[in-house]
Amino acid sequence: MNLWLSNILRFVICVLLQVLIINNLNLLGLCTPYVYILFLISLPARIPRWAELLIGAATGITIDIFCNSIGVNMAACLLVAYLRPLLIDNLVTEKERLTGTINSTEVGMSVYLRLIGILIILHHSAVVMLETFSFQNFHLTLINIVLSSAITFAMLSGYEILRR
């Protein structure tokens, strides 16, 4: 499939899934998984970094418009978009081989899991802390970060295993 088309499709599906279903789940009453970052993680490795930053900002602001939390997801997505190329540089040994979308078949299962694990924790920490915007009851914030990250990680890795 065309790289452009597949990414646009993934964007639409991820955003709709996030805002229409996941955001209304209210799991355990204190955490929200943000599975839409699958779109950012899966972007092609060859994409220019400035474009990746702009795509990250746009994705974040789209989610923010639906969640009524302007700026929060944008900041977190920018973090993901900025750090993802650096992480790929560090984790993947044969970078020349990477042509299309980042997934477990391209980079290998263990590297892929490490990549999404780190990015999910960073993204969720940023989102939860910016939403809370306070260091009071920090243990609750921390529980929220850990639970949300764990659920997102389980969902994304489960999807990846099923997809293979």
Binding site: R49, S69, I70, G71, V72, A75, L78, Y82, L130
Partner: peptide, 23 residues
Amino acid sequence: ILLMFLALETLSLVLIVRNNEYQ
């Protein structure tokens, strides 16, 4: 790239503070 990242990040923080009542 770093400067662009920081600029966009600053923009998002400004948006957070300006547009969200609680923050």
